[in-house]
Simulated assay, not measured.
Amino acid sequence: MSTNAEPAPGTAEEHVQGRKEAQILCAARLEFLKHGFSETSMDAIARAACVSKATLYAYFPSKEALFSHLVQKECEEKCRDIPAPDLDGGLTPALEALCRHFISRFLTKDSAAFFQTVSSERWRFPELCRLYFTTGKKTVLDFVAGYLDEAKKRGLLLFDDAHMAAEQLLNLAVADLPLRVALGLELRSEAEYEKIMQAGITVFLKAYGASNAPRA
């Protein structure tokens, strides 16, 4: 009988493999945050994860592949815990809840630290920054565009390109926050970012709001 078969979905073996991968990713993330990408070795990650190098390479063939997977996970996390905005309660409050989530992610120290880790490697490993930008942008825009499409179906918004509308909404809402985080500059207060976000949504609705959209 072959020993190379994939574990059946839901089996104990599959759950063990899932835990092992999570163990590796958690250790790798901490090592990258402490030492940066270039100064972190696969040996150090294996030690931190309490796994052999053979096990580590069985999951991830290179440090770049491991970091790439971390970037993907990081971007997915940005959308996973978004509170579902309630369009029944009005379009403006729903958009505020959506944008407030992304602002809070940049204001969270742990999330900002990973963003800065990627940014710090931009000269030596520009492909990592490109990966974070393209992967993160796609993940977030896909989610926001889907939500805006739902609002359009309800007759609350009018636009031709959901992804373009999503990008403009987020740019108006977060303003210079990502750049300040990337450069390690002092951030504005939460109250200031709240004010910027609300002003941005007002501009967005002037451009895309349908004439019959409730502006609660």
Results as ranks from 00 to 15, higher is better:
194 E>V: 07
196 I>G: 00
155 G>H: 12
146 G>M: 00
149 D>A: 14
208 Y>K: 00
61 P>W: 05
83 P>S: 08
173 A>R: 01
158 L>Y: 10
183 L>S: 10
106 F>V: 08
8 A>T: 13
99 C>V: 12
127 E>G: 08
169 L>C: 05
166 A>C: 05
113 A>Y: 03
111 S>E: 13
96 E>A: 14
110 D>G: 13
208 Y>N: 04
42 M>V: 01
7 P>K: 02
159 F>P: 02
90 G>Y: 05
59 Y>K: 05
13 E>F: 05
33 L>E: 01
11 T>Y: 06
199 A>W: 05
63 K>F: 02
119 S>N: 12
77 E>A: 15
163 H>M: 11
36 G>P: 03
87 L>M: 13
167 E>T: 02
208 Y>H: 08
123 W>Y: 13
61 P>D: 06
81 D>G: 09
82 I>A: 10
159 F>C: 10
35 H>E: 08
70 L>W: 00
116 Q>C: 10
147 Y>Q: 08
86 D>P: 02
174 V>P: 02
216 A>C: 07
209 G>Q: 00
144 V>R: 03
56 L>W: 02
40 T>E: 00
31 E>L: 10
118 V>R: 00
162 A>V: 05
87 L>S: 08
100 R>S: 13
99 C>G: 12
201 I>L: 07
170 L>Q: 02
66 L>T: 00
2 S>E: 12
96 E>K: 13
98 L>T: 04
71 V>Y: 01
187 L>G: 06
166 A>T: 04
187 L>V: 05
63 K>S: 07
90 G>D: 06
91 L>K: 03
8 A>D: 09
123 W>D: 15
43 D>M: 11
43 D>Y: 09
147 Y>E: 09
32 F>T: 02
99 C>T: 13
178 P>K: 06
76 E>L: 13
162 A>Q: 04
132 Y>I: 09
138 K>R: 14
14 E>F: 05
156 L>D: 07
6 E>P: 09
202 T>M: 04
112 A>W: 02
125 F>T: 06
51 V>K: 06
209 G>E: 01
148 L>E: 03
4 N>Y: 10
19 R>P: 11
121 E>R: 04
115 F>D: 04
66 L>D: 01
167 E>M: 11
215 R>N: 03
